[in-house]
Structure formats: C-alpha cells, structure tokens
Amino acid sequence: MELFFLSIINGLIQGGFFALFAVGLVLIFGVMGVVNFAHGELVMVGAYTIWLVHAQHGVAYIPTLILAILVVTGVGLLMERFLFRPTRNDPLAGLICSIGVLFILQVIATLVGGEGPSKQVPPPFHGTLVLFEFLRIPYQRLFGLGISVLALATLWYFLTRTRLGWALRAVALDREAAALQGINITRISVIAIGVGAALAGLAGGLMAPLTNINPHMGHNVIITAFIVTIVGGVGSLSGAVYAAVLYALFHTFVTVYFGGTVATICGLILMVVVLIVRPTGIMGVRVSE
C-alpha cells in the first residue's frame, strides 16, 4: 500500500518534469515546424549547470536554477538564429541540424564533467513532509512539483491571456495567415524557442538533484518527450500536459513492478498504437499538413 501511494506521488512529480520538456518540444514544433532532436540535450545542459555551479562551486541552488534557465535559453536562441532560421523552409533540415547540436552538446558536457560515472547532486532541500504514516514526500520532490505546476500555469496564462501568447498560437495554427495579420514570424519563433528552451533548462535544473547526470541522459528525455507529444497530440499543449502526467504514472507503475526497460517498451508500443488509432493524439485536432 505504501508503495502504491509512493508510486502515485512519484508519478505525479515525474509528470511535472515530463510536461515541462514535452511542452517545450510541442511549442517549438508548433511554431517553427522543427522537431528539436536536441531537446533532451537542453535538459542535460540545465542539469550540468546545476552540477557545475551548485554542487562543484557551492553557489546556492535557487540562483543556480535561474542561471541554468538562462544558459539553456541562450543555447536555444543560438540554435534558432544560426540553424533554424536559415533552414526555415525545410523542416527536415532543421531536424538534422538539431541532431548535429545534440552531438556537440554531448561532447561539451563530456569535456566539462569528464568521463566516468554519472554525477550526483546532493538535494539542496532536506527533510521529508509526513502527510500520513504511509505517505512521506521529500521536500526536494515537493519543490520540483510546485515549480513545475507554477511554470506550466504561467505558460498557460501567457498563451491564453496575453496578446503575445495569442500571436504565438496564431502562428502555430497558420503561419501565413498570421504573417498577413502583421505578426512578426521571426520574433514569434524566437519567443517560442526561448520559452521552450527555458522550460527544458528548468526541467533539467529541477531534475538534477533527483537523477543521474551524464552526457547521454538526453536520450531518455527525448524518447519520453516523443511519446508524450504523440500521445497528447502533436501541437496540443494541454494534450502534452495530460499525456505527460498519465504517461509518468504509467511509467512509474510499470517500472516499479516490471522494470524500467519494459516500461519504456510499453510506452513506445503505446505511442505506435496511438499513431495508428488516433494520429492526432488524445487532445489533438486535425490540422492541415
């Protein structure tokens, strides 16, 4: 019973992280039409920033978290300016460029952190919240969940309640029509990738104390992000959030009872099934190609 409740809580917390990077991926794909294969590496860069600045050099956790967001946003903006903007008319070219970035970031991470075992960051928040005898949540995880929810709520407010957010959604729906309305596509693309990368950096920073940090950690992140994106419906942000939480619960439970690899296999099969049965995902609407 204790394991059951613990799994639910852990699943929800995982779901928060999954949602952060999946929403970023959806945002970039929706607005720019580019599948950012290096999105997992953006999360990795966020986690490495925490490891390097917080764990190695003793800077406090919260400022480092902000620094991680800024660093990853910077990387994202550089990618937009030098890779995605020149290849704007060709989505596959953008995807392949992002694969190039993936390799480069992995090598930089290896150079910064060195080869060898995965790095661990000691949790900056100690103690455990005891809700019931059978339900204890470390404050670190609670903090991660709280910040994820806060960030997603802010994003929701931005997208649905501000003019810039409307403009962004307009570009995602129909780029040419949006341009005809006088929306600056380049500016919106910069904002989309900036927000997407910032969320990835935040996810990396929040996950850092809870996971193993290594140059190849982005691989699992991108697979998860793909599954969540497809199941939620490509281009649907709310779908990505729901799918993230559902998939995280599913993944946590299968991992607890059958192991991590089986969980990922099931997730991938689930994704292929969704692609066949309902290619628009659980929340998706059919958009013209």
Partner: peptide, 8 residues
C-alpha cells in the same frame, strides 16, 4: 561526435 555534428 562534435566534429561530426559540425560537419552535418
């Protein structure tokens, strides 16, 4: 890998 990425 980085050199390959750059070449790509």
């Amino acid at each position: 890998p980085a050199i390959y990425g750059a070449v790509l």
